[in-house]
Design a protein around this nucleic acid. Structure first.
Length: 340
RNA sequence: GUGGGUAUAGUUCAGUGGCAGAACGCCAGACUGUGGCUCUGGAUGUCGUGGGUUCGACCCCCACUACCCACC
């Protein structure tokens, strides 16, 4: 799942996400972020404009992260309590209280198809007792998330009305894919996923999974991974958690990963993954190819007339040389981020 | 022609009588539920040339050369 934090998968237009040349990436679902969209442009504005699907002209599925990761990444600007998390906006310094209820309210207003429970992404490293306390807090927040969500899920800008977002694109946009989406069907209300934590302790992971499953969600996420631990540890934690999570529900590892990780975890039974890495690395000049990673800004590509990836048939590889991609990057041309 | 100024890394420039510096550029590395055109590291010098003073000169003195400015 490509990550579109602020209502855009950075540097990638929606039509390219839908169908990336003959490679047909065809993203079926992308992410949005509660914290970022709440601060700007504001969830009430998005709701007023018909929800995030319509706002950003994205007819396919949307999953919103709850803001839980920002508990971790914005650690200098926040204070965690039982009630929730108080953030200081990175944009203007204003103070905002995020609670499970508030996160649900925002995600429902945005109109996400999949809403994530508000969790605490445990930092790494974390002592066992700290990881346990963090896990317990996430469980209490999961309960509160679900309670609020069940009471309010029909308030999504599209769920209670007769017009699903997919079938009502902006007037000026062509309803190109309504047929396809009708075949795929569409939900009548969003779904709430629970999130497993537990630090780097297998037994805590299993306990977290068991107790999250008891709360009964239509899908489960494994959070708090790829926060600095070894690849082997990540794999152990996923394996331990998957033993407990029901196989007939979507199982989602949050925030991974490298191309080889995606294949590996999928083979283990993971159904969903999201990561900023492909887009962020690309914007920083790192390309993942069939021949491994290449850093397009290296001098060795200055006269390279070959495509970024000789085995790739996408629009970029079909049309542009490594020399040109390097030139765009080195010159800080905006197109570099798009093509990479 | 006269007067004044400048000369230090690829570039623009700091600098002190006692180990040669910054920014940008260059070279490379990093990036995992996006505070990021970001972060980290590295290489680079006959300190214009030739003399002199000094224990010691990139620094002070003299000459030369090049460039800049003003005036004629």
């Amino acid at each position: 799942m490509p990550v579109g934090t602020a209502g855009t998968v950075k540097a990638v237009p929606q039509d390219v996400l839908e169908d990336l040349g003959s490679e047909n990436l065809g993203a079926q679902i992308i992410l949005g972020n509660t914290y970022h969209l709440y601060l700007r442009p504001g969830h009430e504005l998005v709701r007023k404009l018909g929800g995030l699907h319509k706002f950003m002209s994205w007819e396919r599925a949307l999953l919103t992260d709850s803001g839980g990761f920002q508990v971790f990444s914005l650690s200098d600007l926040r204070k965690v309590s039982e009630e929730g998390v108080r953030f200081r906006s990175h944009l203007d310094g204003t103070s905002h209280l995020f609670t499970p209820e508030r996160s649900m309210e925002i995600q429902i207003a945005l109109g996400a198809d999949i809403v994530m429970a508000f969790d605490e992404c445990t930092e790494h490293p974390a002592e066992r007792e700290r990881a346990r306390a963090s896990m317990e807090l996430t469980l209490r927040w999961a309960r509160r998330s679900k309670e609020y969500f069940e009471a309010h899920k029909q308030e999504a800008p599209w769920s209670s009305g007769a017009v699903p977002p997919y079938l009502s694109p902006p007037q000026h946009a062509k309803p190109a894919r309504t047929g396809e989406l009708k075949r795929m069907g569409h939900p009548t209300a969003p779904a709430l996923f629970g999130i497993v934590q537990g630090g780097m302790y297998s037994d805590l992971r299993r306990e977290s999974a068991e107790r999250t499953v008891e709360l009964d969600f239509p899908g489960y996420a494994i959070g708090g991974l790829s926060v600095g631990e070894s690849r082997a540890k990540t794999q152990d934690m996923i394996a331990a958690t998957l033993e407990v999570l029901p196989k007939d529900k979507p199982r989602y590892v949050m925030g991974v990963g490298y191309p080889e990780e995606i294949v590996q975890y999928a083979a283990m039974g993971v159904d969903m993954m999201d990561c900023v890495l492909p887009t962020r690395a690309a914007r920083h000049g790192l390309l993942f190819t069939s021949e491994g990673r290449i850093n397009i800004k290296n001098a060795r590509y200055a006269q390279d007339q070959g495509p970024a990836d000789p085995k790739c048939a996408c629009r970029v590889c079909a049309r542009y040389t490594r020399a040109y991609l390097r030139h765009l990057y080195v010159s800080a041309e905006p197109l570099a981020g798009v093509l990479n």
